[in-house]
Every structure is written in structure tokens, then in C-alpha cells.
């Protein structure tokens, strides 16, 4: 059993409940025990770092203090929460730490959930429960921005061309397709005030995914998932195309590979139905 602290973040309590369910179930199945941080608060997201550097750092720092007290490494699924927590870590271990209200000694490691899953010890647990290879799934891995950039904050090793998700999905037997837009931006929270920007960015992703012959897009960030999934119809119409890309969480693919029946329920919570794809490749449970 691997014990870790867990920071779900606000959207996993709401619009990304599907991601949360898949994370918590899959972790339990592969022997990861998630301990939700006591009384965690919002990281402040883009709003805080846009309007107050200081408040943004303090908001995340409060969570880090709680996590350090709990004494276990901290796992964060949301790429932006992860990024904000790492930014606070760097500040609290840097020369200006006295300007902030919280202390952090750096005694625990802050993990992006995907990266945590890509450890050999977790892969070994998955291998022990492996039921069937995900043959026929031809995903492109979409990593997005925040889990990797900037590397001075995230400590990512391959920020221009990350490969950990590609390796994990290949390990699950999926026929992963390489593509050049792994870490291109989806526009994130601009979708509220500037959907025009998001639609342009996401259209480019779909267009490239189609050109390289992918049949689905796999993500590890719920903001990427929402922007690619919820607006796929609208983007298809706007650009006069007929895109069909189920936008799947990597945890759902782990679930499929270990034969977890709840996968079906998680998939019905997406806007673009994965059912036609799953049935066409014979992966239905």
C-alpha cells in the first residue's frame, strides 16, 4: 500500500467529478491510499496569480503547510493546482520567503498525479492486475501546459516533449500516436470570458489529431478535458468539420486495462460519447 496526501482541488468537487471518481477508484484498485488534505482551500488558480502574486502564493502555501504537517508526499491531479503549489514551494524555499505568511521546509514532494502513476512501483501494481491490452485505441497524449511549464517551477525533465503518458498508455497496450501538439495550450479558463480564443486553439488540436490518425485524445487535466469535450460540437460547426474524439482521462484507461466495471459510468459523464469507439475496437466491458 502506498500512502499519499491528496489535494483534489475545487473543480474535482464539481464539473470534474467524473475525473475524481476515476482517480479514487483506480488508486484504490492499484494500492494507492489517498489521504485528502484536511481543510484544504482553493489554490486561487489563474485569478489569483493574475491579480495578486502575494495572495496567490499564500493561498497555495496554506495547503503546503497542511500537507507538510501530514508528513506524506502530496499528489495533485489538476495541472493548474499542481503548478500553483509548485510555484509556492519555490517561493517558500527561496530568498523572499519571509515576505509570506506560511512556512514550508520542503520535507515532502509535490507530485503531478500522472507523474506519480508513471513510477515503476505503480506500474508494477497495474501489471499485477492487468486484464486486457487496450488494442485498437489510438490515442494522442495531450499533456497541456501546467504540469510541465515552466520547468524551473514544475521540475519537469522533458517539458517540450514529455513522454511519460505515452509510455504509460503503451504499457497498457494502447497504440499511442506521436504528435507535435502535446503541450500546446487549450486556452484554459479563457473559455468563460474569451471562448473565441479557446475555440481557435482547440480547433488546431483537433485538426492535428485527425491528421496524425488518432481516434481519441487522452488527458490528465480536467480543464483540458472540459475545453476539448464540452465544446467539440460547437467547434466542429464553427470550422465546418466533423470531429469525433472522445476525450479520456488517463485514469479511465488504467481502469479499462484492469477491467474496472465502473469505467462505463465514468464515460457516460463526458459530452462526447466514447461508446461508439469502445465498441468498434471491442473494448466494452
Amino acid at each position: 500500500m502506498i500512502d499519499v496526501s491528496y489535494y483534489p482541488g475545487c473543480s474535482l468537487e464539481g464539473t470534474a467529478k467524473d475525473y475524481r471518481e476515476s482517480i479514487e477508484t483506480v488508486c484504490e484498485r492499484v494500492g494507492i491510499k489517498l489521504h485528502e488534505l484536511e481543510d484544504w482551500n482553493c489554490c486561487g488558480a489563474t485569478a489569483a496569480h493574475s491579480l495578486s502574486h502575494k495572495a496567490a502564493i499564500n493561498l497555495s502555501a496554506r495547503n503546503l503547510t497542511i500537507a507538510e504537517k501530514a508528513g506524506m508526499d502530496l499528489v495533485i491531479p489538476c495541472a493548474l493546482c499542481f503548478n500553483r503549489m509548485k510555484a509556492a514551494e519555490k517561493v517558500l524555499l527561496g530568498p523572499y520567503r519571509r515576505e509570506y505568511a506560511y512556512r514550508f521546509e520542503g520535507s515532502i514532494k509535490i507530485w503531478d498525479l500522472l507523474d506519480f502513476f508513471c513510477q515503476d512501483r505503480v506500474k508494477a501494481e497495474i501489471a499485477r492486475r492487468f486484464k486486457r491490452p487496450l488494442k485498437g485505441l489510438k490515442p494522442v497524449c495531450y499533456y497541456g501546459c501546467m504540469a510541465n511549464r515552466p520547468p524551473t517551477i514544475t521540475d519537469a525533465r522533458n517539458w517540450e516533449n514529455p513522454t511519460n503518458m505515452d509510455e504509460l498508455l503503451s504499457f497498457l497496450g494502447a497504440e499511442v500516436i506521436d504528435w507535435p501538439y502535446k503541450t500546446d495550450c487549450c486556452g484554459a479558463s479563457h473559455v468563460v470570458a474569451r471562448p473565441d480564443i479557446v475555440f481557435n486553439l482547440v480547433y488546431k488540436l483537433f485538426d492535428m489529431a485527425e491528421r496524425v490518425g488518432a481516434n481519441c485524445i487522452v488527458v490528465s487535466c480536467q480543464m483540458c478535458q472540459a475545453n476539448l469535450d464540452m465544446y467539440q460540437d460547437e467547434i466542429s460547426k464553427k470550422f465546418n468539420r466533423d470531429f469525433y474524439f472522445p476525450i479520456l482521462y488517463f485514469t479511465e484507461l488504467v481502469g479499462m486495462a484492469i477491467g474496472e466495471k465502473q469505467v462505463n459510468r465514468w464515460l457516460t459523464k463526458h459530452f462526447v460519447s466514447a461508446k461508439p469507439l469502445i465498441e468498434s475496437v471491442g473494448l466494452n466491458l
Binding site: 501546467m146 511549464r149 515552466p150 495550450c185 486556452g187 484554459a188
Partner: peptide
Amino acid sequence: CASCETCTT
């Protein structure tokens, strides 16, 4: 600016 951090990187 979408804060994608490409420029900073």
C-alpha cells in the same frame, strides 16, 4: 495572455 508559460520557458 493565457499564462501557458511557453515564453517564460
